[in-house]
Amino acid sequence: MATVWELDFYSRPILDEQQKKLWELVVCESPLDTRRAPESLFRYAQFCPSSQVNSAWLRAALEEAISKAPAPPAKIRFFRRQMNNMILKACKELGLDAKPSRHTIALHRWLQQRMQEVYPKEAGFQLMAPAASVRMESPAPRALPDALVGQKWAFVTLEASAFEEMHEWEIDFGEAFPILGEHSLVPQLTPETPIPGLIIFSPRALALAGWISGLELAFLKVDLNSPARIVLETGASDRWILANLTNPQLQAEAKGFDDAKQKAQMVHFLAVQSSPQSESFAGFWLLEELNLS
């Protein structure tokens, strides 16, 4: 399985001797399945003076990270759109495939941990109010290509414990992360927690799953505004209409999905099968809607 890294390069709540914010590069490996313990994932962090924040410094730091890693990344994910140009430039110069992505779950958890356990120990740490965010408008969701529209779909749930055997399921395209036990990236979940999901059934299941796998999946969103629909969020801001909620019954089911997602700490899944009778999956992705800021 190819190695994927998650990357953040941004200022931290630490002031240097000149009272300028210290910047930091952090990279961590994506788990990709439910069995990877966070401590087994490659991690690298390096502080950067604000006077040296540029693509050249970032390129050199990434080279250092690669030299220490067990394997170079086949792909790099990053979520900060405001750093898009600098990250893409540094990665391109290193021949690395970098993608804007909101599927940075391991990185999100590590940054939370560093905010609690690492940064407060630095001499210049200051608990600062979050910077005012620049609102970036989300585009209107696009329709799926006609050839990839599923014929049927259904809301379903699986207990969290079921995902411990996900590595044994027959799946052509997919990705997951640990959600139970001491290695969980979502420690609030219990084995009995219902995890909601959406299954799409299509005679072109493999083609649909292959197309979806080429996207940087983020999460599913229920939009009950008119017209009500289920939206697949991908990349930094891309949005796709997976299904239209054309009647009150479907809208009630969608509301149930959304309520279950809230109770499951925003964890949910998307699956693709050829038919309801199929015992294999053309695609299966475990997702979490993150609050990235």
Rank of each mutant, 00 (worst) to 15 (best):
A2G: 04
R81N: 09
M115S: 13
M166I: 06
E288G: 07
E63N: 12
M115P: 00
S184K: 03
I179R: 00
Q19T: 07
Q18C: 04
H183T: 11
A45I: 10
P191D: 13
A131I: 14
Q249V: 06
A131Y: 03
R81A: 15
E93R: 07
E168Q: 12
I14R: 04
E164A: 10
E63W: 03
W211H: 10
W23P: 05
S11Y: 12
L287V: 14
G214Q: 07
S133Q: 13
K99F: 14
L208I: 03
L62I: 10
E288T: 10
L250G: 11
K221Y: 02
G150E: 09
L22G: 05
A176C: 04
S226Q: 10
V222D: 00
H108L: 09
L180T: 00
T34V: 12
A162P: 01
N85Q: 12
I14G: 00
S133L: 11
S133D: 10
L217M: 06
E159F: 00
T157L: 03
A90W: 05
A98L: 07
H103M: 08
L15I: 01
F177E: 01
V134F: 06
E93S: 11
H108T: 11
D172E: 11
W240Y: 13
S30C: 08
G124E: 01
L111F: 06
R43L: 15
N291G: 10
K152R: 12
R43F: 12
W169K: 06
E288K: 12
E279Y: 07
T104A: 09
L208R: 04
Q188A: 14
A264H: 01
D97Y: 08
E288C: 14
F257P: 00
S67K: 10
Q277H: 14
N291M: 08
K121A: 06
N225R: 04
N85M: 09
T34C: 10
A154F: 01
F201Q: 05
P194V: 04
R59W: 12
K221F: 01
L158D: 03
W23K: 07
P31F: 01
L290D: 15
A60Y: 02
G174Q: 02
W285K: 12
R12V: 15
D146C: 04
E39Y: 10
E168G: 04
P178G: 05
E165Y: 02
V222S: 00
I171K: 08
P191Q: 15
V118N: 03
L41G: 15
I105F: 01
V186D: 00
